[in-house]
């Protein structure tokens, strides 16, 4: 197995050398770049997934909640959508360092000590705000008759949300949610500023040692590939979930 992988690696490197890239440099840093891609994927999947869990209650609070809940949800998304992600990341990562003693006391310091965790937390809070706005828009774009009809059939409000409103809102919000996922892949590069070795972090490390601009081109290619894959997958997903809306071609 190892021999086979080595062969594939050597073949890939000589191919890259053949098209004019620096195969010696790639041999030295190539595997690190793959590690970086994996860290970036972890950051994005964790934060977008957890953010989605947070976004639904935020969106529903905005619509169903009283003045207080709706106001709180609005304030939350206004703050996180109105300030740069970099500032939020610094606020949480460096801000947590300031409250080290208090955090140790409540037994949370181990979490905030790790830059990766802080990045995931910040990105989760940030994307939850954007996703909740998408979902709110989707829910509000449904005709009011959907809720009335569900209630006329004797469904409770909670059940109506679960069986009628949420599935439809999800299908409507699918495309903007895909855009949000792509934005998150791009924004995750910010984690490199707080010493996380994601794809961007690895690239900056490789550049600071080799001074070869080429490493930025590798990173560019890898990011574009990730974004393009999401775009294609989303096209398929959208066609599948919204196939009842498609006009036959």
């Amino acid at each position: 197995m190892q021999a086979f992988l080595d062969l594939v690696g050597a073949g890939f490197l000589s191919l890259m050398g053949f098209i004019g890239l620096n195969s010696e440099l790639m041999g030295r840093y190539g595997l690190r770049f793959l590690d970086g891609v994996w860290v970036t994927l972890q950051l994005v999947i964790l934060s977008v997934g957890l953010g989605a869990l947070l976004a639904w209650p935020l969106a529903i609070a905005r619509i169903e909640g009283g003045k207080l809940l709706a106001g709180a949800s609005f304030g939350y998304s206004y703050f996180f959508r109105g300030t740069p992600l970099l500032a939020q990341t610094f606020l949480i990562y460096y801000g947590a360092g300031q409250f080290r003693e208090a955090l140790t006391e409540v037994g949370l310091w181990w979490f905030f000590r790790d830059a990766f965790n802080c990045a995931v937390l910040t990105f989760t809070l940030n994307t939850a705000a954007y996703q909740s706005e998408i979902l709110r828009g989707a829910i509000q774009s449904l005709p009011v008759g959907q809720m009335e009809g569900a209630q006329a059939l004797g469904l409770t409000r909670v059940l109506a949300y679960r069986k009628v409103i949420v599935p439809q809102a999800f299908a409507i919000g699918l495309r903007p949610l895909g855009n949000e996922l792509i934005l998150m892949i791009k924004s995750s590069a910010i984690a490199s500023v707080i010493t996380v070795y994601d794809l961007m972090g690895v690239t900056r490390l490789a550049f600071s040692r080799s001074y070869d601009m080429e490493v930025y081109l590798w990173a560019a290619a890898l990011y574009l590939i990730m974004v393009e894959i999401v775009r294609r997958v989303w096209d398929v997903l959208e066609r599948r979930l919204n196939r009842h809306l498609l006009v036959s071609r």
């Binding site: 792509i182 791009k186 590069a189 910010i190 500023v193 961007m200 930025y216 990011y223 974004v227």
Partner: peptide
């Protein structure tokens, strides 16, 4: 498609 940070660098 590129992260803004990467474009900047």
């Amino acid at each position: 498609g590129l992260p803004e940070l990467l474009t900047l660098f």
